[in-house]
């Protein structure tokens, strides 16, 4: 399938005035202003196919929002080529905007003093949504996101979770082909986060809307995005599926075997013993190819085995390991 977004060697450099220390420095900078160049995005390339859900992940200052802003036509890349739906986003900002939806977790696009419904109506005019389609989408999104109770309440009276649901609904009212979300779950409570994640996963699955989201919350990626793009210092570090990242780092799956009585020391070639609590023993599976069956086969039948638990490594752990070892990995990932 041909790509809906193509990013090739894209860079973005910001020119910022140099701040000199102290009062003297501040006065000096008034007369001889010096600038430094901050490279927010450096030589980033990737493509995204229609219907994909991609998590764009990185620490603060990694260049996530800058990339989203370039893809949505807000910022102009300093180098490289960028194509969204076959167009250069900044050069065709308005045409591009008509076919995408954008949600900013920390900035509202709703009219603060007016009922949610009024913002939706204005959105219909701005995006020229036919009335019948608008009514259909509004009914669907209201029911899916449970907004019926507060559609006629002023935005200023809504909780953060309610507001975010309204923001997401508004971004989908014109049937965008791509939905960009910049930190959509930031500040939400557990219940609201869960509702937003489930909804986005469903929209991606059922409507085929391409989703690109930046987040700090790894649970967002795990529940919504099969594909992960990781960046740091403006550079792309990893692009692929989460299991591939786990595999690239070496499997860290933990296996817990619980016996009726302490069987004594157990040495296996398929699993490495890390904790021995007598009747409960914890192993690490070093290879992605090793299955529970392999371990149990090697263990044999001579033990009073009561329970087996396999734990996938937490995504937080995978990411932490990744960033700790990024100099070595950067060279090996695409």
């Amino acid at each position: 399938m041909s790509a809906i977004i193509e990013v090739s060697g894209v860079a973005k450099t910001f020119r910022q005035p140099k701040r000199l220390p102290g009062m003297g420095g501040a006065l000096r900078s008034l007369f001889s202003r010096q600038f430094t160049e901050v490279r927010a995005v450096q030589d980033v390339s990737f493509t995204i196919a229609p219907g994909e859900a991609v998590g764009y992940l990185g620490p603060n200052g990694a260049g996530k929002s800058t990339m989203i802003k370039m893809m949505t036509g807000i910022l102009v890349p300093s180098a490289g080529t960028l194509s969204v739906l076959g167009r250069e986003p900044h050069a065709h900002r308005m045409t591009n905007a008509a076919e995408i939806g954008v949600v900013f977790g920390q900035r509202s696009q709703l009219w603060w003093d007016l009922p949610v419904r009024d913002s939706f109506d204005l959105h219909r005019h701005i995006y020229e949504v036919p009335e019948a389609r608008f009514a259909e989408n509004l009914a669907f999104l209201t029911s899916m996101l449970g907004m019926a109770d507060y559609l006629d309440r002023p935005v200023r009276q809504l909780s953060l979770g309610q507001r975010m649901r309204a923001e997401i609904a508004m971004a989908l009212l014109h049937d965008p082909k791509i939905l960009f979300l910049d930190e959509p779950t930031i500040g939400l409570d557990v219940v609201a986060k869960d509702a937003v994640r489930k909804f986005l996963a469903r929209i991606n699955r059922e409507r085929g809307t391409t989703i690109i989201l930046t987040t700090h919350d790894l649970q967002d990626i795990e529940e919504i995005c099969p594909r992960l793009i990781m960046v740091d210092d403006g550079k792309l570090l990893f692009d692929g599926e989460l299991p591939r990242l786990r595999s690239a780092l070496g499997s860290r799956r933990r296996l817990r075997l619980e016996f009726g009585t302490d069987p004594g020391p157990i040495n296996l070639t398929t699993a490495r013993l890390v904790t021995d609590d007598g009747a409960a023993k914890h192993f690490l599976l070093d290879s992605e190819d090793t299955s529970i069956l392999d371990v149990l086969t090697e263990l044999g039948n001579g033990y009073d085995l009561k329970d087996v638990t396999l734990e996938e490594p937490a995504i937080e752990e995978v990411i932490r390991t990744f960033y700790q070892s990024k100099p070595q990995l950067a060279a090996t990932t695409p």
Partner: peptide
């Protein structure tokens, strides 16, 4: 400063 301008720039309107 608050980034609200970004939200205006992603609308299909001048």
């Amino acid at each position: 400063r608050q980034g609200t301008m970004d939200a205006i720039l992603v609308k299909p309107i001048g």
